[in-house]
Design a binder for these strands. Structure first.
Lengths: 227, 227
DNA sequence: ATAAAAATGTTGTATATGCAACAGATTTTT
DNA sequence: AAAAATCTGTTGCATATACAACATTTTTAT
């Protein structure tokens, strides 16, 4: 099985393997729920997620956690090209399920090696694109968080999710508890607002399947509650 | 006057000029408060801010605005390497003061030209770095917005600002009204919290000069109000 | 110098939100 | 299959917050 997305876009398995040898790269396996790395502890390595699922999590001083990124195979991570400032708080790369990670040196990525493999450009381009994508995700999260009320945050989030799935129904990528974290609101308060949205017939939630009944393009969704 | 920061890092004026000719690049001037471009209206161009100040602003359906980015000379912008999703909402690039912008084609940046100028790699590397930086800023904003209360948002923002200025005193980059927008909170509510923080002797604000009286590294700043 | 616009500072009020605490459902682990 | 852990759904309550409305100061434009 070989990936053709993310960092592997337009690069064949053959080319990738050659590059990895050229980069003196190595692979590593992690079981589920393992701390793969902690940012801040020196790391000029870039990880390429080949298989599994990774979350990048910030733990606040009070124990609260925020999901910063959600990685799938083909995604890259690493402090150097990280979208995370070397701030005070604890940032950890954690495996959500068993993972295979390929490591390369940051210098190998940005510097052109003497052999000047033609795929190197594609590789850099892909990396650029991935970082851009990451930033886009961050920006979307920002759009959600910049909503004032929980109701607006929910609607904004559901709108975006619906927009991405090209449908008015979609699967939540995580539990409602985690959604509350994602929206940075209190879970119980969020549940209350979800109930109101249901009562207003704006959404329906069955298990993790969400259906929205407002137009996701026109912003007419700022309707009042029925009271 | 020539810049040596941002996209110009490790590239001499001579090299930059040659590259710009090679790229068939052109320059443009904008007066203050001009809409330089609107995202969504096709744009494969990358802008390099040579002189002036630019803000990238999202206008919400209800007229509320959010500052997405704050650009200084040496920064780059453009939808292609933008950190902004091609979402529903209106995103505009606006000049805050008179600006000179150098335009290049995105394809020129990512594709290696036939002449294979050695500075091209540096240029790409710089672009990568700048996007990373942008993402870092977004992520910091995210850290601020993920705080639950206005008080925490303010403290988080001031901590970061203090952290960056390597001092417990720093200049606000914008007005308090704009700060409220940045924090995505109501201005009057923010003013109330600022007053409380002043009463608690945690901060002092004179004009745009902010001084913080809590340690910006240890998170002991979550102190109670005096009541 | 004057007018206009923007920013600051304040207050009252209805409501949304965080917090705590709980029971039941669901999932995961043993 | 039983036990443990997590998730869901709900409620009461104190308080933080959005919203509106206003006076005053400061900045910008003319």
């Amino acid at each position: 099985m070989y990936l053709s997305t993310g960092i592997f876009q337009d690069i064949t398995e053959e080319q990738f393997k050659k590059m990895m040898i050229c980069f003196h790269s190595h692979q590593k396996h992690y079981p589920s729920n393992e701390i793969i790395s902690t940012y801040g502890t020196e790391n000029s390595k870039i990880g390429i997620l080949l298989e599994g699922e990774i979350m990048i999590i910030r733990t606040h001083y009070d124990g609260r956690q925020t999901i910063l990124e959600h990685l799938e195979p083909g995604d890259i991570f690493g402090e150097m090209l990280s979208v995370i400032p070397n701030s005070i708080s604890l940032v950890q790369v954690v495996s959500v399920r068993p993972c295979f990670v390929q490591y390369i040196d940051y210098q190998c990525l940005i510097k052109r090696c003497s052999k000047a493999c033609p795929w190197h450009s594609t590789f850099v381009h892909n990396a650029l694109h991935l970082i851009s994508q990451k930033a886009v995700h961050l920006s979307e999260r920002l759009e959600v968080l910049s909503q004032r009320t929980t109701r607006e945050k929910l609607i904004c989030y559901f709108s975006l999710a619906s927009f991405h799935s090209h449908s008015n129904t979609f699967q939540l990528p995580f539990s409602l508890s985690t959604l509350a974290d994602y929206l940075s609101v209190d879970r119980s308060a969020m549940m209350r607002e979800i109930k109101k949205l249901k009562d207003d017939h704006l959404i329906s939630i069955v298990k993790r399947r969400v259906t929205v009944f407002f137009d996701r393009t026109t912003p007419s969704y700022l309707q009042e509650t029925h009271c």
